[in-house]
C-alpha cells in the first residue's frame, strides 16, 4: 500500500457541485480541446438528427416521381442551400475531429494532438469555404 493513509469515508455533504451535461455548454475557461469536445457532441447530435430527416425525405420516393421532383425543387430554396452549408460544417467538424480522436485515443500522436486539431481545423475551413462557395453560387444563379 502507499505511504498515505486512506481517508475514512465520510457522509457526503448535502450539496454537490457537479457540472452535469449542461456544464458541457459552459464556455467559461474552456480551452481548445474543450471546444472540440463540445463541438463534437453538438455536431454529433445534429448529424444524427439529419440522418433521420434524410430517411424521412427518402421515404417520399414511395409517393412517385412527381412528388419526389416537387420535393427536390423545394430543396433548391436558398434557405435549404444555406442549411446545406451548415450541414457540411457539421460533417467536417465531426468527421475530421473524429479522425483526430481515433488516432489520439489509440495512443497515437498524443503529444501532437493540439497540432493535429489545428491542422484538421485548417483543412475543414478550406473545404467548408469551397463547399459554401459552390452551394451559395447556386443561390446567386437563381
Amino acid at each position: 500500500m502507499s505511504e498515505r493513509a486512506v481517508t475514512p469515508a465520510r457522509q457526503a455533504p448535502p450539496r454537490g457541485r457537479r457540472r452535469g451535461v449542461l456544464g458541457w455548454l459552459d464556455v467559461r475557461g474552456r480551452r481548445l480541446g474543450g471546444w472540440a469536445f463540445i463541438l463534437n457532441r453538438v455536431t454529433g447530435l445534429g448529424v444524427l438528427f439529419y440522418l433521420y430527416l434524410h430517411l424521412i425525405v427518402l421515404s417520399q420516393l414511395a409517393a412517385g416521381p412527381s412528388s419526389w421532383n416537387a420535393l427536390l425543387n423545394w430543396f433548391l430554396n436558398p434557405i435549404f442551400l444555406v442549411l446545406d452549408v451548415v450541414l457540411l460544417a457539421g460533417l467536417l467538424i465531426h468527421g475530421l475531429n473524429g479522425i483526430r480522436l481515433t488516432l489520439v485515443e489509440f495512443g497515437l500522436v498524443v503529444s501532437r494532438q493540439k497540432a493535429l486539431l489545428l491542422a484538421f481545423g485548417t483543412v475543414g475551413v478550406i473545404v467548408l469555404l469551397i463547399g459554401a462557395l459552390r452551394f451559395l453560387s447556386d443561390v446567386g444563379a437563381k
Partner: peptide, 19 residues
Amino acid sequence: LENAPLVSDLVVEMAPFFA
C-alpha cells in the same frame, strides 16, 4: 472547484479524490 461535494464557501470535499 467543480465536480466535488461542496463543504463550505470555497472548500470542497477531497475525500473521494484521495480515495
